[in-house]
Write a protein that binds this DNA or RNA. Structure first.
Lengths: 342, 342
DNA sequence: CGGCAAAATGTTAGCGCTACCATTATTAAT
DNA sequence: ATTAATAATGGTAGCGCTAACATTTTGCCG
């Protein structure tokens, strides 16, 4: 029973706090805090006593309170377009490997390739006072762009190179498109169809198409674009192959926007007895493992996805800890991987 | 200049707080808080004034402070064995879809199939006062088991069915193993090798083997186990196929622990001109999309991965919000998917 | 138009931790 | 032994928000 003037407790049967630990170890709360945060400034004997007390009372640290008091959450907000695409999963793996080692916790979300959603997610995430923000790509809506510009912790825009707000780790998609187009030209192809799935949303596929287009245009060739609706990953590629064979009878090669589409087409060709590359050559982008296990092996461009993640994490951590960076921009490059499919 | 008795400010040039917003809107701080958390108890006119003030001062909500004060973080800690395995990614997608809709934020980590690491991660995550905890599987080390037992927010153990601490959403792996073994028997196979990669770590593959073994043993047949080292996903399957053909000349079928291995084997067979299922039949587990695009299509068992995630999220949310649950256990089942590979 | 319940808003006191400065214990130097 | 320096520990006051209760305002009825 509390009289109306009695202090009413806010916690019912909560966890022990550092106060309990401090009492048990006969030190002050701040010493417990120090054992947790910078053990080496506490004398070993004291530290041992505190650690014993922590065990004894079954103390579980409250990170929320710590983050609030120290105004540093050790959260890293990560925003990618999709979690269904292995490409981004590998990037996240790279980020995670480095951030976890350094005691940072990733907050993850996906935009479904929607810039409005991205903006909303950025807003929400900033509420957690993250130590840094990692977003995919350089295109944002204007509200988002403004928020990013005004926010003053590290921001890494990854996957793509160009005008970034802060850090930028990625590759030149236009150049990747050019690279594959040049290769196909060299191989003697004069009628190449570029196939993507929803270029409007996956605009990096659009950038690669621009590169592709430049090269073919430069050789006075046409560079038709076939933009498919996204169905299943492989399904779309299979359908695209049928469409190209039906609608572009002169086409001798298909430049797919990614390996999922290309693999779908390749496996479909196999089922249908369509000969690759004789009847039609097939090229992809990303360098997914599956491409090297199908027959014929897929000609593609390998992007260092895991590496992008790891490098981004390293740069961001350097920036957080105030270490100087050689450069804000890092071109991770790409590699033409030649199989038998084109 | 501060005299030593002056209150020294802890924040330098920080974000505006609800106090600033309150002043701007000529209301009290708590009203601002209410506009943010339960808008419908604030009169529309007041709400509008507050919302205008929020915009005007550029207020960004501090979730850390809110979580601390309300002792509720709306974090969901999610622990899976691996982020390289699409199976878990799909589960996470299922979780995410539901949790995001309800305003929960996932904290994600992977154990690399290591129970000690799992224990460590659970400890760390509890420090964020998550609203619930979702872990993969039912096996934990004793320290972890104790922590889970003592923690009193919702816990969901997913993927696998059995003795759970709290909620349990998954499927019966032993039964899945039996199901495939029975199917292979029906098809006339009498020499079936079970191939897994590191059963010691992926013990659910071991459970499926147990089911497989029971059925074959019940028909007076042997059930050899080939446990491979994990290399690349597909690579391992390819090597396993070679091993089986070399070391088990009587084998007429391989029951792979998962579709990655099976697909690797299937594609390898194709490259090598080994006829499937005539020379050797191949079966998998999981029902990944790729299995339905290779030739011959993979016979496998389809697990409802996305559904496990969604259901787990639904149950957990119900539990958090104090709604009664029909049952703490949910068997999501599985489905035998018959292709031409076995 | 008074009276009263319900709705809207306000006041106070923490949530559990750490920054900042102050104090005390220990060691080194003379 | 004494002092000066350093190392170790402590006291106090928030971090920004919300729970719990208190107070005021509003709507509605006879």
């Amino acid at each position: 029973m509390f009289s109306s003037k009695t202090k009413r407790p806010r916690r019912s049967v909560m966890q022990p706090t550092i106060a309990e630990v401090a009492m048990e170890a006969r030190v002050s709360a701040i010493t417990v805090s120090r054992v947790l945060n910078s053990p080496d400034v506490v004398r070993p004997a004291t530290r041992a006593r505190v650690e014993a007390a922590i065990d004894k009372v079954g103390y579980v640290r409250n990170m929320l309170a710590g983050s609030l008091a120290s105004a540093s959450s050790r959260f890293i907000a990560v925003i990618v377009p999709s979690l269904s695409n292995i490409v981004f999963i590998e990037v996240i793996n790279g980020l995670q490997s480095e951030f976890e080692r350094q005691g940072y916790q990733i907050l993850l979300a996906n935009t479904d390739y929607d810039l409005e959603r991205e903006c909303q997610l950025v807003r929400t995430f900033l509420g957690w006072s993250p130590s840094a923000l990692i977003v995919t790509g350089l295109r944002h809506n204007s509200a988002c762009q403004r928020i990013l510009q005004e926010w003053d912790s590290p921001i890494a825009e990854i996957m793509e190179l160009g005008e970034a707000v802060d850090l930028n780790i990625g590759l030149d998609h236009r150049e990747a498109g050019r690279c594959m187009a040049r290769y196909l030209l060299e191989k003697g192809h004069r009628n190449v169809v570029y196939v993507a799935a929803q270029v409007g949303r996956d605009y990096r596929a659009g950038l690669r198409y621009e590169g592709h287009w430049e090269v073919l245009e430069g050789s006075d060739l046409t560079a038709p674009l076939l933009d498919m609706d996204q169905l299943g990953q492989f399904e779309t590629g299979a359908r695209a192959l049928d469409s190209v064979l039906a609608d572009y009878p002169d086409a001798s090669a298909i430049h797919f926007a990614n390996d999922d589409l290309a693999t779908g087409a390749l496996l479909h060709a196999q089922r249908q007895g369509i000969r690759v590359p004789e009847t039609i050559a097939i090229a992809g982008f990303n360098g997914l493992p599956i491409g090297q296990h199908v027959t014929p092996r897929l000609t593609t461009i390998t992007s260092p996805r895991y590496r992008i993640g790891r490098l981004a994490a390293e740069h961001v951590i350097s920036r957080i800890e105030g270490r100087p960076l050689h450069s804000n921009r890092m071109d991770v490059g790409f590699e033409l991987t030649i199989g038998e499919s084109a």
